[in-house]
Amino acid sequence: MKNQSKLKASTVFVHLMLLVLVVVNLFPLYWMITFSLKDNDEIFGGYLKDNAGAIIYSESGEKIPVARNMIGLPRTWRWSNYTRAMNTGNMGRYFLNSLIVSVFAILLTLLAAFMATYALTRLAWKGRKLMNKFFMLGLTIPIHAALVPVFLILSRMKLLDTYIALIIPYAAFSLSMGILISIGFMGDIPYDLDEAAFLDGCGVWGIFFRVIFPLMMPATATVGIYTFLQCWNELLFATVFVSKGRFMTLPVGVKQLVGQHTTDWGPVGAALAIATIPTMIVYALLSRRIQEGFIAGAVKG
């Protein structure tokens, strides 16, 4: 009996520690959302202003100080920060660019990875293992290796500031992990199916596109999610290869919002929230799948 209550006390302690960590994890996000609806005066302290931004004076002609309100809910909910982030901050444009780049990079990665995996696991040739090892080198190669040469190639081919400038490098750097994940999934597809399709008159291409490809849907999700997260958040390539507003992706756009001088933090917070919320929604819907993708990649690597 005594032992049991002791056990309970330790469980309560563990929960308490975990809850503290939950608060530590969630607080910065709560704080981002709330400051995205405030102005600098409320965040850092300042003087009371009217809606046009002019300072309001008291009857005795003095400025009225605004108390800082860092961690509380906004006193007035300034949704205009969000319209400013969308209009002057161009967040809609960056969002669309990120989406286009990510989707095409995912499609390219999937096609190249599935085809290569098929050749590596189901076609018969010497050097399969060696070729597999060759592709796995990509897991350790830092993107810095490609930065200068690819920049020079793109610049000489006049391809800087295009979607292609990001789509192809992103797909190339997601490829190794794509193949790694695909090999696991393709290994689970029974070889009898290949045989049956062959007897029905399919060649390797028929087997690949009619039998293997449709059965690779679970791998599509895992590889797709992995590639998406790689592309959606990438900064170094995006900064170097795409410097013009028309093709800039979200990370570069967000980075540009914090100006050289004083920063108007309200709209910046709104931009951060706009860039974060979609990922959070996807995570809420697919959390298990996303986690599995990360685990699959690391455990096999």
Partner: peptide, 30 residues
């Protein structure tokens, strides 16, 4: 069929182009 060289090459080609073009060749160039 599954040992036909041209098929094997064709299946590997997209991945090889991406991998060699963006990762391996740039290392040498760097």
């Amino acid at each position: 069929t599954i040992a036909y060289k041209l098929n094997i090459l064709a299946f590997l080609l997209p991945a090889l182009i991406l991998f060699v073009g963006i990762l391996i060749a740039p290392i040498v160039m760097s």
